[in-house]
């Protein structure tokens, strides 16, 4: 393992992110804030939703923002760099085992997802204010869940980015990301699916469910949520699964 090479690759990604900062911020925060505004302010303010929905919604918005940011930050550049511009080849030729290049991407994506998650909290809070009732009851679990969620989204980005081709990006959104978001228990708690028992079981294969429920458990425990242990175990499981899958796919893509 060659630390200089690894850090230089991280520095490269940071440099590019800084250069595209405006676009990055826009793309990360616009959608969640619009969502927060429409459902948290408009719908609640006009009485179609109870006031408590604000607090229920916030953890879900954090989860979606993080997961989406992590996936996007890793998958999109990988798809382009492998296929279109092949610019990743320069890094594949750097004196380091190629798995570390994938891991570097995962770390860069994880950092972006964490930052996005932490920044969206005050932003959403300002939009929703007043009447949001959140507090960090268990700071350690909160940090752990944020990290686990960020890692699985970056690993998911790696697995997706190395598995699909440029022409299938639309398909990826239609078939993977959109159902994941809508059945991710982000806009409603998992217990809200009690009336749809089959669906309620099926959505358990969706890692976003554990992200939303886990954040709900640490930020707004007054609402029903999945047990903390189950959330940890499943998030850890998805982290490992997606990392292993992602590394395998990366190796396949990188070497012909």
């Amino acid at each position: 393992m060659n630390w200089k090479t690894f850090l230089a690759m991280l520095a490269r990604d940071a440099h590019v992110a800084r250069r595209n900062a405006f676009q990055l911020v826009f793309q990360t925060f616009l959608q969640p804030l619009l969502f927060v505004f429409v459902f948290g302010r408009v719908m609640v303010g006009s009485g179609y939703m109870p006031n408590s929905y604000k607090s229920l919604l916030l953890p879900g918005i954090i989860a979606i923002t993080m997961v989406f940011t992590g996936i996007w930050a890793v998958a999109m550049p990988l798809i382009a760099e492998f296929q279109w511009t092949r610019e990743i080849e320069d890094r594949l030729l750097a004196p380091i085992d190629i798995s570390w290049i994938a891991i570097e991407k995962v770390i860069a994506g994880t950092i972006q997802a964490v930052v996005a998650g932490l920044v969206v909290i005050p932003m959403a809070w300002i939009v929703l204010h007043p009447g949001v009732d959140i507090s960090i009851h268990a700071p350690l679990s909160f940090v752990a869940i944020i990290l686990l969620v960020a890692i699985f989204s970056a690993c998911g980005g790696l697995a997706l980015g190395c598995s699909i081709n440029q022409q299938h990006i639309g398909l990826m959104f239609g078939m993977v990301i959109t159902p994941m978001i809508f059945f991710g228990c982000a806009y409603y708690p998992w217990s809200a699916l009690d009336n749809f028992p089959v669906l309620q079981k099926i959505v358990l294969i969706n890692p976003l469910v554990y992200a939303s429920e886990g954040l709900r458990a640490t930020l707004v425990p007054q609402f029903p949520h999945l047990s903390g242990i189950a959330v940890f175990v499943m998030l850890l499981f998805f982290d490992v699964l997606l990392l292993v899958l992602g590394l395998r796919q990366f190796g396949k893509k990188a070497i012909s």
Partner: peptide
């Protein structure tokens, strides 16, 4: 041709 390498969708 592009798309021949790996990937569950491909």
């Amino acid at each position: 041709p592009a798309g021949a390498t790996g990937g569950f969708i491909a």
